[in-house]
Design a binder for these strands. Structure first.
Lengths: 192, 192, 192, 192
DNA sequence: CATGAATGAGCTTTCATTCAT
DNA sequence: GATGAATGAAAGCTCATTCAT
């Protein structure tokens, strides 16, 4: 007797998530060209063919990973934070604290930051049109008015801030005994 | 009229340099695995076969690029600077000024920083054993004694400093209208 | 109330027949190499795994189909007809009438002819050693003696006759609004 | 020093023709699904990779073969013949003589007929809209008026005629010691 | 020396077969 | 018994490398 429709659906969804998550870490560490599907499948712990039951091609898998990074809750959460009615100083503290905490414990968070940033770097239309950048730019402008953020081009500062976050995401992924970024360092980038 | 021995040697040397330089930019932008020799040759403007008259293999070409990045005068210069009899503050200013100036005008400099850093990230033995890191660590320690550099783990600060430099090297390579790093930003990372 | 042994046996036999029949049509249309078990199962309306409960492998399924085509009553019937004590003219008329009638109404007949002929074409030992050919050769020889069949190599004529039958079997399978062969056409091939 | 542009072009064209011709024979004998690119390349006497320098995929190679069969001069020649100012009887004789002669000596001719017919069989819009069929239909109508061709549906007769040609093309390809079709047999199909 | 066509090892992808449910 | 997800062997395809010119 066959499994129920729902059971199947659940199993498929679980497997898809598993592949997506493990692959994103693997791709982030090894790059697209250096990742062999055979190795990736072995790393995930499934057969090569199974990959192709869930994704039409290596290319499509990679695209899906990108999409997931873009739509991830964690990133969306930061956007929300930036819109709350708080002094800029507090917003920056909250965001920085959140980022530092996440980066400390969660490889997947680092992967998302990494992929997202690399996507932005490769985009033709330029880094600075990105939402995360724009949100941070707003906060910085607010902070400059409130006198809690250093003077200077707000976009330049936003760029510096997220760039530094990217830097430590990379380190989390690549360096075994890396020195975790401290909240105080992120704050120093922006605050007077 | 046969060309002289020397002319031949010169031509070979020139071509080799051309390949090395253009390849390093291409590798830095695309990564090793994603770079196809055919595309690379087209980008350089030579035949595929020609690559193999100057380098035994893709691997060897990449090794050569790595060596060039490691032994480059520009990088060596920074090392020398760090050993001169100056207050830490001055050293940091000189280094930062040098880095900012170079990054502004020279793609090749950005390429070297990029490749060097990516190599460090991939090394098993850890980022922090690197010479550039050690030199900066020393300066920071000196600065902390002299009271001109913020307190904190010197290696952490060195890491932050070079990481930020890497960040802006990346941007120079990938982002068309990127916002150049300012000397003052680099100084802010370290100075009180 | 458990089903009886016999009911089970019947069900298995029915399913086996269904698979055999539908598969033979599918194979005849698509060829062996171009037929994917997945597609075939979907066409039959069963699960992929189910195929393997009735046949050990794709190869075995095909062998079984071949055997069925070779041993089919319809084909055997023609052989019997050829041995009856009748004038050649009558035999040819009876065979042709039988073939034309069957081809008109029965896809399975067309399938058998098609598979049988394609197997013959692929056989190394030559088309002309086939029983159907030999039987027809005999009738033609008889007819030539009786003055009712055109002169010429009897094997050549037998070949022409069965080839034409094959031709119209193919058309029945492939062409939607095909023009059915007429008995008179088959007779014209042989008779004076 | 590189070869001249022209030499290259010629060589590429020659290789392409060679692949096309040998492949068409191989495909015709083995079918699409049963043909492995590796085997095909070995049969042609080139490396596997070379196939892909001239055709993007197995599919594209197959499509190209079909196109060649459709546009072949030999087939076009028959079309021309059908339009010349001659009695139908003569046209049929000329066409039949041409076909029989070609089939006797040229595997490539048999391949073209085979591929062309299989294409027609697979076409949705029906066999009978084909140009070759229409041309023959015209000749038959003419012949029926002239009293040299048997009565009956002209399209049915055209179908019978080309079907028989296909039959013997198949035999040329598959049967080692096949009995060649005789001109007289083709004429018997149509003439009174 | 410089070239790009040719090659085949190794990668990506498919599909006959197995297996847990 | 029946199913379809999972598998890996084998097929399709790519690309670093070689080689004839």
């Amino acid at each position: 007797m066959p499994k129920t429709e729902e059971q199947y659906k659940k199993m498929r969804e679980d497997m898809r998530s598993k592949i997506l998550e493990k692959s994103s870490l693997y791709f982030a560490k090894n790059g697209f060209g250096d990742t062999k599907i055979g190795d990736l499948a072995k790393y995930i712990g499934i057969g090569q063919g199974t990959m192709y039951m869930y994704f039409k091609s290596k290319e499509e898998l990679f695209d899906e990973i990108r999409k997931c990074a873009e739509n991830s809750e964690e990133i969306q959460g930061l956007m929300v934070l930036s819109k709350m009615p708080l002094p800029a100083e507090k917003k920056i503290e909250k965001i920085s604290s959140e980022v530092v905490k996440r980066l400390a414990v969660d490889d997947r968070y680092a992967v998302k930051i990494t992929i997202l940033t690399q996507l932005m770097l490769e985009q033709e239309k330029g880094l600075y049109s990105n939402n995360l950048y724009k949100a941070m730019e707003k906060i910085i402008k607010q902070g400059q008015k409130e006198g809690t953020v250093v003077e200077g081009d707000p976009l330049y500062l936003a760029d510096l801030y997220w760039g530094t976050v990217y830097l430590y995401a990379l380190k989390k992924l690549f360096v075994a005994d890396y020195k975790q970024v401290k909240e105080e360092t992120l704050l120093r980038l922006l605050e007077v």
